[in-house]
Amino acid sequence: MFKGIYRNLELFTAYLAQFLKVRMSFKGDFLIGTFVSISYHGITLFAIDTMLRGYPTLNEWKKEEIFFIYALCAIPLDIFGVFFTNLYNLSRTYIVEGEFDRLLVRPINPLLQLFMERISIEKISGIVVGFVILLYASEKLEIIWGFGNVLCLTGGLLCGTIIYAGVFTAIGSLGFWMPARTSMLPTLWNLVAFGRYPVDIYNGFVRFIICFVIPFGFVSFFPASQIMGYYEFRNMAILTPFVAFCAAFVGYSVWTMGVRKYESAGN
């Protein structure tokens, strides 16, 4: 068990080192990544800010609270993005074009290989931007970073990343059953947007979906509500680690079933 983890960590660093070497030879990519992140978050927040200009509350949520939830949605997404971007290529490059063969003839867990083959260092800049937003909002909201809140934040970010990873892996693995050049992941990406705002602005149906089907509500809103002191959501927030565990379990199960279903391209 520990030997396995150690070995995988060792491999991971080896892949990462290789990857960094490539990155260094592609000058400017990091800058472009930063530019992409800043423009993405900048434009979205600018739009939210404009919306709230006339009426400074959204269903009695203050602008800064929205920003805070937004940051808690964005940071795990970028942490996820750093390590799991290759899920986007799974359907097209790996399944349809048959690159997955290559992963299967090597003595490493194929899921780990998939992730290791593409590490998006440039997304780190997105994480930084996310923390800037978080700090700005928490400053305005006068959040005191005591032990409880720090624990809540780290737990929330960790669970959020796991939830994203689990859900995206599960949906991405559907490509094994339905090989197509485009995967369903962009749809999921759109669903992420639901997690950016307080859950109580949605109707019952959407609320049910983002709490229990595609649990993006647990990524941002529920942990954020505890840090901001809205204790009426405590019963839900406490479920976050459990939801993360379920997401990871479902994701890995669907992946394993998918690999068994894999029909290599070509003949």
Partner: peptide, 16 residues
């Protein structure tokens, strides 16, 4: 999905 997200945001905005 896109329409839904924006619709709910605007709906919340118009609660007044």
């Amino acid at each position: 999905i896109h329409v839904a997200v924006y619709y709910f945001i605007y709906k919340a905005l118009y609660t007044g």
